[in-house]
Amino acid sequence: MNTQYSLPKITLAHLEKKIDNAMASQLSQLPQQQPLIVEPEVDISGITDLVKHIEGLIENAQLRGSERTTWPDSLNKFPFVLLKPFKKLILKFINILFKDQIEVNQNLAEGLQQSLLINQELIRQIVSLRYQSYRDVENLNHYQQLLGQQITATILPNSLGKITDHLYELNEKIGGDKS
Results as ranks from 00 to 15, higher is better:
Met1Asp: 03
Asn2Glu: 02
Thr3Phe: 00
Gln4Leu: 02
Tyr5Glu: 00
Ser6Thr: 05
Ser6Val: 04
Leu7Asn: 08
His14Ala: 08
Ile19Lys: 02
Asn21Asp: 08
Met23Thr: 07
Met23Asn: 04
Ala24Met: 05
Gln29Ser: 12
Leu30Asp: 04
Gln32Lys: 13
Gln33Ile: 13
Pro35Asp: 00
Leu36Phe: 07
Glu39Cys: 00
Glu41Gln: 02
Ile44Thr: 10
Asp49Val: 04
Asp49Glu: 07
Leu50Asn: 09
Val51Ile: 13
Lys52Ala: 13
His53Cys: 07
Glu55Pro: 00
Glu59Leu: 09
Ala61Gln: 12
Ala61Lys: 14
Arg64Val: 10
Arg68Leu: 13
Thr69Val: 10
Thr70Leu: 02
Pro72Glu: 05
Ser74Val: 03
Asn76Asp: 09
Asn76Met: 07
Pro79Trp: 06
Leu82Ser: 10
Leu83Trp: 06
Pro85Ile: 03
Leu89Asp: 09
Leu89Val: 14
Leu91Ser: 05
Lys92Glu: 09
Phe93Arg: 06
Phe93Asn: 08
Asp100Tyr: 08
Gln101Glu: 14
Glu103Thr: 10
Val104Met: 09
Gln106Trp: 08
Asn107Ser: 14
Glu110Ser: 12
Gln114Lys: 15
Gln114Ile: 03
Ser115Tyr: 04
Gln120Thr: 04
Gln120Arg: 15
Glu121Ala: 15
Leu122Pro: 10
Ile123Leu: 15
Ile123Ser: 12
Arg124His: 10
Gln125Val: 15
Ser128Asn: 12
Ser128Ala: 13
Tyr134Leu: 01
Arg135Thr: 06
Val137Arg: 14
Leu140Asp: 10
Asn141Trp: 04
Leu146Met: 11
Gln149Phe: 08
Gln150Asn: 14
Thr152Asp: 12
Thr152His: 05
Thr152Asn: 05
Asn158Ile: 00
Asn158Gly: 02
Leu160Met: 01
Gly161Asp: 04
Gly161Tyr: 01
Ile163His: 01
Thr164Lys: 01
Tyr168Lys: 15
Leu170Asn: 11
Leu170Glu: 05
Asn171Lys: 01
Asn171Thr: 06
Glu172Val: 11
Lys173Thr: 13
Ile174His: 08
Gly176Val: 03
Ser179Met: 08
